[in-house]
């Protein structure tokens, strides 16, 4: 069993759950987004839009929770063995990911608000629109949403590439400390 909270060497179960839940959610919303905009108008397209928006709003709530959790937990530092510029790059990348995790759903929420469409999250409850109806605002938000998507794809590629490099090339603990596995090296930091 891993601890719920982070330690100085490992991410706890809370952070891991949020990380992998969001990873799955972000991948799904990207695929959904891409598929739905290429469908012909109709019921199927509407349903995918609905799902995409509901999932996106859920991710917005999760990233808020995640930032809060990060703030009230220790963050396992990057190993001292890493060159300075790599540590800087990793930190910049993570900040970029957090920014995009916020901006991606927020820009989507603005598209929907500017279209003055109602937003019912998974058929459970309706959330209010953020902005007044405006075609020009909708166009800007739509362009941003697409731009953030490509930015997200770029940063995620680096993020995943980096994680795999640590695991398979550098053979360090970086990927493992975000995985629900137990390691000898972790015993001392188990609480």
């Amino acid at each position: 069993m891993i601890a719920i909270r982070n330690t100085t060497t490992f991410w706890g179960a809370g952070a891991q759950l949020l990380h992998w839940l969001m990873a799955a959610g972000i991948a799904t919303s990207m695929v959904l987004g891409w598929v739905m905009v290429n469908l012909p108008p109709g019921a199927a397209q509407f349903q995918l839009y609905s799902l995409h928006k509901s999932l996106g709003i859920t991710l917005l709530a999760l990233v808020a929770l995640r930032l809060l959790w990060r703030w009230i937990n220790v963050t396992p530092p990057l190993p001292e063995s890493l060159p300075r510029h790599e540590r800087w790059l990793a930190r910049a990348g993570h900040r970029g990911l957090y920014a995009l995790m916020l901006l991606m759903p927020l820009s989507g929420y603005v598209i929907n608000s500017a279209a003055n469409f109602p937003l019912n999250v998974f058929g459970l409850f309706q959330i209010p629109n953020l902005t007044p109806a405006s075609e020009s605002l909708g166009e800007v938000a739509s362009l941003l949403h697409l731009t953030f998507f490509w930015g997200f794809v770029a940063v995620l590629t680096a993020h995943i590439g980096g994680a795999l490099r640590h695991h398979f090339v550098l053979r360090d603990n970086i990927l493992r400390r975000m995985l629900p596995v137990r390691h000898a090296s972790d015993d001392r930091s188990q609480s």
Binding site: F46, Q47, P118, L119, N120
Partner: peptide, 8 residues
Amino acid sequence: ATQQGGEF
């Protein structure tokens, strides 16, 4: 009326 389950 409702659209995608949301009221307008």
